[in-house]
Write a protein that binds this DNA or RNA. Sequence first.
RNA 1: CGGGACGUAGCGCAGUCCGGUAGCGCACCUGAAUGGGGUUCAGGGGGUCGCGGGUUCAAAUCCCGCCGUCCCGACCA
Length: 432
Amino acid sequence: MADRQRITPRAEDFNAWYNDVIMRAELADYSPVRGCMVIRPRGYRIWELMQEALDGMFKETGHENAYFPLFIPQSFLAKEAEHVEGFAPQTAVVTHGGGKELEEPLVVRPTSETIIYAMLSKWVQSYRDLPVLLNQWANIVRWEMRTRLFLRTTEFLWQEGHTAHATADEAEAETQLILGVYRRFMEEWMAMPVITGVKTESEKFAGAVRTYACEGLMQDNRALQAGTSHFLGQNFARAFGTQFQTASGELDYVWSSSWGVSTRLVGGLIMTHSDDVGLVCPPRLAPTQVVIVPIFRRDDERTRVIELGNRMADELRSDGIRVLLDERDGMKPGAKYYEWESRGVPVRLEVGPRDVEKRQAVLARRSGGKAPVSLDELGAGVRGALDDIQVTLLAAARERREANTYRGVDQGQLIEIMEGPGGLAFGGYCGS
RNA sequence: CGGGACGUAGCGCAGUCCGGUAGCGCACCUGAAUGGGGUUCAGGGGGUCGCGGGUUCAAAUCCCGCCGUCCCGACCA
């Protein structure tokens, strides 16, 4: 056996395994810039699918997308005391532009509260202007000392929701509404069960009154902070003078929330499901859900098999399934199987001369098991398998969680756990 | 910023201790056969050995300096 590129087994070195899975599945690569990563098409597609699902959920709950600038005047950051203390040490600062030194340095946004509240101060006058329910998809920069692919990079992609309300209760309700949206997304789409709770004082967002978080369980039994939703009180409103006139004619500061999930979710996805063969991707977020591998010997067989493969692909595609026909020549079917498995494609359809005759295909699942499907029931069969895999992955992840196998590190990053098994200790994965 | 490992072909590595023609596997290109779980044979292309100095007849190899990467730690909204 040749020295085939091997994925380090999880049991041997979990971190090496994680990197190997990413490189092997071609999800991302290291960039020439320290701490920054290149997200390759296969990895970016997962993020796009996440975005699609989340964006729909945000819109269903009344939010609108907007976009605020990448640069923030350095003085903005300093207006909220806790905020500047938390973020100033990890900002990138632009001091020159157009060959000249800037009068005021510009911070590359580490988060957008400050610039958004500066704008809301202009836009909000009356209680009738509230609530404001905004979201933006953006990139941000935080100068981290140590980075890891997807989990913590200097620049990363995320969404940040920012809402302003007339009352504390409304803002609090919004904060928890989004926490629920996140939980639903993580469980229904990522098949990643999470525990929700309140972050400790030292772990909360700098400038928030209270931070809620979704924590996922990774296969090395460590928790991963997968999403946060912050109740900001009136902190930013006071700092930026975001006032409105109430129905009774008084002036008050708006109450607000902010919340975000990032490309770290892709890392969480990997660490939740993947195995020593490579990536395991829940069908709903799989860039390719079905790969069709043709098998043939002679040219005439090739013609017939490829033709059938194309028909199958067309049918599935029209059914909304993300399917790919692997026509590459000179590569044996077995080699293709291994490759697509390491890339996390949940379902494989094998089509050979025997199948053409029997009007069927052999459906193989990424996690094992093969069975023939009649062409007449192809769509239903594939759809059923995809749904089943999605459910099975969540159940398996739940089982690990219920087994309470969290690593016994008692750093207690969450206080007041809201759901899930109680009394769990959180050994922070990459902290917060 | 500390500790560890490393830097030789696109990728993974050997060669470094003990200086003497730059090698192996995978990948890639050409041709033929092969094809239901990682094909085989034959031929071929590809290298400032991280960078800069020094020692030497001769440096991937020894000495000095620098740069970079990964892992662990500190940091982590």
